Amino acid sequence: PDLGLTQLFADPNLIENLKKNPKTSEMMKDPQLVAKLIGYKQNPQAIGQDLFTDPRLMTIMATLMGVDL
C-alpha cells in the first residue's frame, strides 16, 4: 500500500502550492528536489527510500498533510 501518498502527490498544483508555502518555498528553488517531487506523481513508492536520505521530504510531507512540525 502507498499509505495515501498517491493522493498527496497527485495534486496538479503540488509544486506551485509548495512554492507559495513559507515552510517549503526555499526548498522549491532546488531543481533536483522539484524533479523528485514530479517523479513521485508517477511512482509514489519511490519516496519511501528518499525519506531516509533527504530530510526536506519529511517537511514537505508534513506540509502536504497539514501537520505543523
Rank of each mutant, 00 (worst) to 15 (best):
L14G: 02
P31N: 09
P22D: 07
N17M: 05
M61N: 01
D11S: 06
P31V: 11
Q49K: 11
F52E: 11
Q7D: 13
A35S: 11
Y40L: 10
E16M: 11
D54E: 04
V34Q: 06
T53A: 11
L14H: 02
D50H: 08
P1H: 12
I47H: 09
T59K: 09
I47Q: 06
L51W: 12
A46M: 15
L14F: 10
A46Q: 12
Q45T: 09
L14P: 01
D54W: 02
M65Y: 07
G66L: 11
F52D: 15
P12T: 06
V34R: 03
M28Q: 00
Y40G: 02
I47R: 01
Q49Y: 07
D30M: 01
Q42L: 12
K20E: 08
K19Q: 15
L3P: 09
L69A: 13
Y40C: 02
T53G: 07
I38C: 06
A62N: 10
P31D: 10
L69K: 02
L57V: 15
N13T: 10
L18N: 00
A62C: 10
M27V: 05
K36M: 09
N13R: 08
S25K: 08
E16A: 10
P1F: 03
D2N: 15
G66P: 07
Q45P: 08
M58Q: 11
T24M: 04
D68H: 05
P55S: 10
N43P: 02
K19E: 14
P22I: 06
Q49T: 13
D11H: 07
T63A: 13
Q7A: 15
M58T: 10
L5A: 10
I38P: 01
D68Q: 05
D11Q: 07
N21A: 03
L18M: 03
M65H: 04
K41G: 14
I60T: 01
D50S: 04
S25C: 08
L64G: 02
E26D: 11
A62T: 11
I60D: 00
P44K: 02
L5R: 04
A10H: 13
I60N: 00
M58D: 06
K41F: 08
N13P: 02
A10F: 08
P22G: 04
E26N: 10
V67A: 11
P55F: 08
N17I: 13
A35G: 07
L64I: 13
N43Q: 07
D54Y: 02
R56I: 06
A46G: 07
N13K: 09
T24V: 06
P31H: 08
T63C: 05
P12L: 05
K20Y: 05
D2I: 15
P44L: 08
A62F: 11
M58G: 06
Q32L: 14
A46E: 13
E26R: 03
L5P: 09
F52W: 13
K23A: 12
D50V: 05
Q32W: 11
L37W: 01
I15H: 02
I15P: 01
A46T: 15
K36P: 00
D11E: 08
N43F: 09
Q42K: 13
E16W: 04
R56N: 07
L5S: 07
S25Q: 12
P55N: 13
I60F: 04
I15W: 04
I38A: 10
L8Y: 11
Q7C: 08
L8Q: 05
I60S: 00
A46S: 10
D30S: 03
T53F: 08
G39W: 11
V34A: 04
G39V: 08
N43V: 03
M58V: 14
L5K: 06
D50M: 05
K23Y: 06
D50P: 03
P22A: 07
L37A: 00
F52A: 14
I38R: 08
A46F: 10
